[in-house]
Each structure stands twice: as structure tokens, then as C-alpha cells.
Simulated assay, not measured.
Amino acid sequence: MLWILLAIVALIVVATFVLFRVHDLSQFDDDDWAIREVAPNPAHDEVMERIKDMGRASKGLKGKARLMALRNHLDSLGEGVEIESDIRHCDYPKGEWVIAPGADTRRRVLYIHGGAWAAGSPRSHRAITDRFSHVANAAVFALDYRLMPEHRFMDGIRDCRQAYTWLLNHGPEGEEKAKFMVVAGDSAGGSHVLSLLAWIRDNGVRQADAAIALSPSTDLTLTAPSNRDNIRTDALLGPVFGGLSKIPLPILWWGTLAAFRISPTNPVASPLRGHLNDLPPTLIHASTTEMLLHNATRYAAKARSEGSPVEVHTWQNMVHVWHIFSPLLPEAEQAFDDIGEFLARVESGQTEAKTA
């Protein structure tokens, strides 16, 4: 019996090595980036209370009930936001247009929301999409892509690809070619953004003029240092995902394969692990205290090494995707100003592959 057990263990070890070829990317752990310091502000305490409310909303619940509570709470974040934009529902592709007063509808932003691929919606992220429409002077299409676990991970990927190609030729007023295209998203949606850019490049589709990823997930292998080092300082992701640090990485990789039906080393799910050449000007935001910090900085460093104009801008001690707390947080407003400045530089041809 012992030799059978040892044979099984050996087989699993070999299968793990063959299936998950996790290359060491620590050469891209360069901490030489500017950090925007943050002054204490009463708004930060209010944000922390809102995050605690999210935990309370699902406390004691399990399974589907817990997921539905989380989804409902995220949607409630968008319901209390005062916005100036016109909201128009769209059935195909599924989502909503968010159009600031006077926005040029030939300028378009495809926005892909976050929520760990299992939560979030256009409604939950209206604070972000409203501000995007203003700073980009564009019509924003917030995609309502299919979520896990009701759907497969790749269903959401296909929804993003379909929406992008549709937006190239359709605006809120009907069929009309886009003159300026931006792809943007946060967290899990930021991963979809970066994956989409590579797909566009590889399939001969008109590339986006610019891309913006807010606190993106870029690597599901969870090998970046901040995935573990920043558990205690990440008020949002730490309590939810911090426990994963106690599980050996190979087991997590097999779990990801089972849940996502795609290897965590596949660039579709982990954009960092793909080819990052010939990408459009891309801006990434991250916080120094979030678990996904090195997901952002590694991606930017690797992309620059391959010649793509990717910038990473970091803020000190901010919560994961603090942009969603606009206009409450001054730093959220600063982040949107930064996005506006980036887009202006893109249009003037002044972007370059650097860290700022």
C-alpha cells in the first residue's frame, strides 16, 4: 500500500510541474516607483466603516446566500451616488451607457467592473463610470458580463471581447464608428482589460487608443510578494482572501484550475504571464498597502521591458480600488484627475514606457 501511495504522490508532483510551469518573475520586483503620499482625512474612517459594513452584510452566511449578500451590498454602493450622467440600459451587449452632459459619443470607454469575477455590476460601479465619462469626455459602456459560478470564467472573457468589437462600430445613438477607444476596469475587471488588450493585438482587431487598470489582478499563481506581505494592511481583500496564504501554492493552483476551468498560468487569466509587447499606452493605479500591489508593478515592469508604454502610479495606504469611493475620498478625485491627465498625454502623443 505504501508504494501505491508514494506513486500517487509522485504522479501528482510530476503533473503539477508539467501543467503549471510557473516561471519566477521576481526580476520585475522593482520598488523604484514614486508614491503619492496621503494625508489623514476623516473620509478615510468613513470608508473603513463602509468596508466593515460589507463584512457585516455577509456575516454568518455561507455559499450562495453569502455571495448574494455580497452582490447586493456592492450594488448598494452605486445606489447612493449622486451622478450627473445619463444612464441608458442596453440589452445587447448587456450593460449600460453612462454619458456625462456634453460628452462626445464618438469617444468611448468600455468599462469592466471588478468583484472577483463573481460579484459587481454596472450599478455597483456608477461612481467610477460617471467620473470616467467626465474625465474622458466620452460615452462609457459599463459591461454586465457573465459572472461565476453560474457561468464559466471564459464566458465573461467572451463577453468582453464581443463588447469591445461591438463598441468600435456602435455608440449610444446607434451604429457609428468610434474615433477614440479606451478600455478600463478594476480588480478582476482590470485583469479582463489586460487580457483583452493581448487578444485584440493577436487577432487583428483595431487596438484601443489607451487602457486603464485600477488595482488589477494580473497573476492567479499568487506568487507576487504583496499577495502575502500585505494581507494585514489590505482592509478589503485581506479578510476575504488572506486565509489562502496558509494553503500551499500547488494546491491553490489545482483549485483555481477546477474553479476557473483554466490554468492559473494561462495569460487569459494571468495577463502578466503572456507576451506584453505592442500594447497601447496603459495606466495602472495601485495602493502601497493592497495585496495586488505587486500584480500591478510586476506587470508594468515586464511590459516596459518588452517595449510597451505602461505606467504605474501608486498611492500610499489606500484601500483596494479606492476610486469607487468618489467623491468622498479626496484621493479618489486625485486619481481621476490623474486619469484625465494621462488620456490628454495619450492624445498628444507624449506617453512613454516609464514609471511615474
Rank of each mutant, 00 (worst) to 15 (best):
T314Q: 02
A259W: 07
G242S: 02
G238C: 05
N295P: 09
S263F: 00
A296T: 04
P239N: 04
P250R: 08
H275L: 14
P267Q: 08
L222Y: 10
T297A: 00
L283C: 01
G307D: 02
H285F: 15
L237Y: 01
N295K: 10
T256F: 14
M318E: 11
R232P: 05
P267L: 06
E311G: 04
P267Y: 08
L244F: 14
N230E: 09
N266R: 10
P264F: 06
L236V: 09
L293A: 03
P271D: 10
I284V: 07
A269C: 13
P280M: 11
S308A: 10
T282P: 00
A224G: 01
V312Y: 08
S287R: 09
G274N: 13
L249V: 14
L220H: 15
T233L: 00
L236A: 11
A303P: 07
T288K: 11
T282E: 02
V319L: 06
T221Y: 05
L252P: 02
R298M: 08
I251W: 04
R232E: 15
W315K: 09
R232S: 14
R232W: 07
A303T: 05
N266M: 09
L283F: 02
T282S: 05
R273P: 02
A301L: 03
A259D: 12
T256E: 12
A269R: 07
D219R: 01
R298T: 05
P267V: 09
F241C: 08
L236S: 08
M318Y: 03
G243S: 02
S308H: 01
P264Y: 04
A296L: 05
S245G: 12
G274V: 10
R261S: 10
S263E: 11
D219F: 04
P250G: 06
K302M: 10
F260E: 05
V268P: 12
E311F: 06
D278E: 15
Q316H: 12
L252T: 05
S263H: 07
N295T: 03
R228M: 01
V310R: 01
I284E: 00
S305G: 03
S287G: 15
T297W: 00
L249N: 15
T314V: 13
A258V: 14
A286W: 03
D234P: 05
T221C: 13
V319W: 06
P264T: 07
T314S: 11
N317F: 08
A286S: 10
Y299A: 06
G243C: 03
W253D: 09
L292T: 12
M291I: 14
A259R: 14
A258Y: 13
M291H: 12
F241G: 10
T223M: 14
L272C: 08
A303G: 07
D234I: 00
L237I: 12
R228H: 04
I284N: 00
W254E: 09
L244A: 15
A301P: 01
G274Y: 11
L292F: 14
S226P: 08
Y299I: 12
L293H: 01
A259S: 14
L279T: 09
V321S: 09
L220F: 15
N277F: 11
T265F: 07
T233Q: 02
L257I: 00
H313F: 04
H320D: 07
S287N: 05
L222P: 03
